[in-house]
């Protein structure tokens, strides 16, 4: 096994560990928004590490280039998805955790709902 392959396997291990703990956060945290935070951050970075590790281990251009493209794509899309999900779940009526400190989005959510009511 060459030294490149060992570096790649180290990347893959770190990525898999991050994925694991991200999903653990999905189970442990108390409300949708905290779960979304933990899971989005950890799973995005973990999957990117796995993709980079794949590019290093295989070292064939056909696989490596696609892996890098896929990593760029995930970096760009996954925060957008998280943002849409957070907004959607607040507007669908899921409140924050009981022990939350502050919530400034409430007035804005009412505003959005009022606007949509007028549009219909």
């Amino acid at each position: 096994m060459s030294s490149n392959a060992i570096i790649g396997y180290i990347f893959i291990t770190i990525g898999a560990i991050f994925d694991f703990f991200g999903c653990m956060g999905l189970v442990r945290f108390p409300d949708v928004y905290n779960r979304l935070q933990a899971a989005t951050k950890c799973v995005t970075l973990g999957t990117i590490f796995i993709l980079i590790g794949t590019a290093i281990v295989t070292a064939t251009p056909a696989i490596a280039i696609k892996a890098i493209l896929c990593a760029v794509f995930i970096v760009l899309t996954s925060p957008t998805g998280a943002h849409a999900l957070a907004r959607g779940s607040f507007l669908s009526g899921v409140n924050l955790w009981d022990k939350s400190v502050t919530n400034k989005f409430k007035e804005r959510a009412e505003e959005i709902k009022a606007q949509r009511g007028e549009a219909r």
Binding site: R28, F29, P30, D31, Y33, N34, L96, W97, K99, S100, V101, T102, N103, K104, F105
Partner: peptide
Amino acid sequence: DMPIRPGIVK
């Protein structure tokens, strides 16, 4: 203990 103190700020 999960040291979290969540909230939405502006």
